[in-house]
Design a protein around this nucleic acid. Structure first.
Lengths: 244, 244, 244, 244
DNA sequence: CATGAATGAGCCTTCATTCAT
DNA sequence: TATGAATGAAGGCTCATTCAT
């Protein structure tokens, strides 16, 4: 990076731009609406140039999944360093997850797309490995907190559940919820007015349900959220909750 | 139905077959791989005939969503009639949900597809309403059990959550989990060996987390599952857990 | 006709209705928009029934041309019997032509359609003959008046023009004008506000140009129009110039 | 044009070729027989390439109409510059019109096609405007000569006719005649042997009918035709009246 | 005769990808 | 490396016509 030429920097920048162009199209108009012509036009470069970056359309999708996944990993890593008890760290992960979902709603669509065999098959194994590594990394990070909680006697692992499976539960709930929030416009009509707040509440009750030692006072939960947002994710939070 | 002619019966049967042809294609090969030519070929009828049933490809997707949703509604209705306490009835819903997910894994893909604007726009409002009605019906059915639990003092509603939002949590978890189980082949590698069992466990802990009065003995949970499977969903369960 | 059964009468009536359904579609939406399905639906009979009347779509077009042509012939015949000088009779033909154009604007489109080889080829020679006969009949009728004018010394035939060719000129002008009036919505913007009145004027000047002996007084032209309309085409005129 | 690359020249040339391919198909086989496949095949390029030139089939039709209209405008402009009295200039327009009709008989079919709503709707407003402009330009050019004739006391405008409406008459006659000559193969059988000569004669009598001051001698009319053909439309005339 | 489901050729159009410049 | 015209397979859809009931 440091000693890169202008050309190299421009090249990397353009790669980012391609992904940024693809992102909103996928959430709002679907994979079907994403095509190379459109990308090239918005990029203000030719189709050939886009192909210099990505050998096929499918690689763009996968690159998008990897990029957001890395973003998430990085956010989880920061959250996992939050000081305090395991429960607080876990809650920090929850906050990271919500911010991530708000910033990259398309991630939940892309994650599904990438699994479609006809898409997956056309991608390079290099990138496939990157995705797997990212996923595993995220999961390990979170399951690490579970291990830690068990070690610190903040929780006894529920019978028949491995730490990974426990994380699978949390992941499922957030994945399902944020997927629906990104795509299902009928939720308000069914009485789900504020999905993001509901998810926070559900996460907490899931942890309670696993017997994870709660925080001392009721209002501590809000305090943690505020702290995590201001200390760790100040920039992200202001992006989302400010005008722009 | 009773006094239908042979032609009418054949027509209805063929409509079912179109949906049955579309189903596996969507789970295993993705929406992209589903095309009218292919449907017609597998149906062993001409393209025109397929178009006599559905005016466009998008309507097939929506019809598929409605069909499985109705199937689910019907299973939820049967489950909701399970005799016993609210917690047992709720568990019966969980069993219904698992059986449904095993029988119709494509539902979780189709539910997402149907929301894509370019698809949604091309469908008739008649079918759109049917989908909305089905969704609301399912949700109402489950939130009804929550209401009942509150009324029977089996649970106090967590602060800040409406019954609908509580159901949204359960729904998110199952939706997310079954979506991933249907599409993410990397789960075993990440230590999630038996996803379906994990979901059962998670559901239970979520209900615990909401403070829903538990069953009296540990082994009662398995008893309920067994009872529901044999008494209410005997046919479905044998379909899934038997060879064929 | 007289001793026809109810069935026969219904059959003939349905044939008329098919043509009446086709007519407005062709003027307002074009030949492309005319299809057997649509005809059958509006007829409230099945497609098969339509095919009992006409062996193919092209025959409908030709039948339509013949029908309006016969209508025109009949109107021309009535006009040709108008008592008075040749010029007056010729003007009566002009009135007939205008009324016809107002009643059957699609005729001018259908006349063109019918000549398209791919359409013409698919029609029966019986109907083809009928069309030719109708055309010739109309032309002969009008050229008869020219002959008569020459015989009565109301006109000397312009050098190099046969009576048929003279009629071809009149026919061209009306055909061109009524074609454009039926299809070209840009005429008013170009300053052609009242096309039908303009055609009347042009016809008169054409006849003047051929040296056809004029009527005695200026206002006689209007008198003839009024007389023809009320005496010969009372019904047609009221159809057009009244509300409906 | 001057400093265009080879590619650009090829591109423009191909666009012309597409229109030239479409032209005879439309006159001899009708709009129905014109399809993108066929165009591409005759062009010996792929379908996609045709679509790079025209976004849809309808635009080809409209482009064809515009192209011939512009051709006509250009010919009318040249004719309008013919030196002499207004009547001679008007006759020059008549000659231009005949040559145009002989060179582009499909124009009269295309003009009708373009008005069909289902076709018109699919075209770009840019091209729509071009057509309107072309039409207006032609009409204005001819009505200009009428104005001039009135100014020069070569004619008194007939009562109740504007110059534009007068031109509408001439236009109707030629449009109708050339339309029929292009499509109606039954004319000879009805005694219209030489349509083009007949049209020349009719034009002259129409102008006489409007009271337009005639040329001094009978044979002057032929002289004008010969002069216009050799001085203004030498190339066009030789194209038509020579073998090829 | 009437029906209308079934047919399938054929059309328009899209778009990922290539490659000569 | 950048370009973007060219490609052509593929897909959605229409509709005249047939024919078993």
């Amino acid at each position: 990076m440091v000693n890169s030429t202008r050309k190299e920097r421009e090249y990397l920048y353009r790669e980012q731009r391609i992904l940024e162009i693809a992102r909103p199209v996928i959430v709002h108009e679907g994979y079907h609406a994403l095509n190379m012509n459109r990308i090239a036009e918005q990029l203000e470069y030719s189709k050939g140039t886009v192909y210099n970056h990505f050998p096929c359309k499918e690689e763009i999708i996968l690159a998008l999944a990897i990029q957001t996944l890395e973003q998430r990993t990085e956010m989880f890593q920061r959250a996992a360093r939050f000081s305090g008890r395991s429960r607080e760290r876990m809650q920090a992960i929850g906050v990271a997850c919500e911010l991530f979902a708000r910033m990259f709603p398309e991630h939940f669509v892309v994650e599904q797309l990438v699994r479609i065999p006809s898409i997956w098959e056309k991608t390079s194994s290099t990138r496939q490995q990157q995705l797997y590594r990212g996923e595993t990394c995220c999961l390990t990070l979170v399951s690490g907190i579970v291990h830690e909680a068990v070690g610190a006697r903040d929780m006894t692992l529920p019978t028949g559940l491995t730490p990974e499976e426990l994380v699978f539960g949390l992941w499922s709930m957030t994945f399902g919820a944020y997927s629906m929030l990104a795509t299902n416009s009928n939720l308000p009509a069914m009485g789900i007015a504020n999905g993001y707040d509901a998810v926070r509440s559900h996460l907490r009750h899931m942890l309670d349900g696993y017997g994870w030692r709660p925080l001392d006072h009721e209002h501590d939960y809000d305090v943690v959220v505020q702290k995590v947002m201001s200390e760790i994710f100040h920039e992200e939070a202001s992006q989302i909750f400010q005008p722009g």
